[in-house]
């Protein structure tokens, strides 16, 4: 489902190198909140080791975990699409090492260089499409007792 979404597969080497020049090495202990729903999406990450979970706050309940992201995967795409606001929360499930990027700086590079901008847009588009496909498959409840769907 995600072969096209890891950084090495998705970005041509030249654009990848440019992006990586803006990467900061960061590390989060387990339990760190990376971002919260509704806040400004001003950064994003690529996971090197460990697992980040995406969750939704439910009043009176424990946060519902929607998906987990691991090695090579992009954490956050709302920074690329207006209004640049997170629609989920994210938390380090384990000790996480990641590359962190400043969203505003990358957006500016995209605006200045259409070639780079298109490459980034295609990469983020892949990630979004991929998560949509995964969400749809999960919506089927495949592993239910009769597979999914009703008999004809």
């Amino acid at each position: 489902m995600t072969s096209a979404t890891t950084l090495t597969a998705a970005l041509p080497a030249e654009h990848r190198a440019r992006l990586m020049r803006h990467a900061r090495e960061v590390s989060f202990p387990a339990g760190t909140r990376l971002f919260e729903e509704g806040r400004r999406a001003d950064r994003f990450w690529i996971v090197r080791t460990g697992t980040v979970v995406l969750d939704v706050h439910v009043p009176g309940r424990r946060a519902a975990v929607i998906e987990s992201l691991g090695h090579g995967e992009l954490v956050g795409w709302s920074w690329h699409i207006p209004p640049y606001v997170w629609h989920l929360g994210a938390e380090a499930m384990s000790q996480v090492r990641a590359w962190e990027f400043d969203a505003e700086a990358v957006r500016e590079m995209c605006a200045r260089d259409p070639g780079f901008g298109r490459a980034i847009a295609v990469w983020v588009g892949h990630v979004v499409a991929d998560r949509l496909r995964a969400a749809r498959i999960r919506l089927l409840d495949l592993y239910g007792p009769y597979g999914s769907g009703s008999p004809p």
Binding site: P145, Y146, G147, S150, P151, P152
Partner: peptide
């Protein structure tokens, strides 16, 4: 199979 026919039509 699992609650329904594979060839229904």
């Amino acid at each position: 199979l699992h609650g329904g026919p594979v060839r229904a039509s």
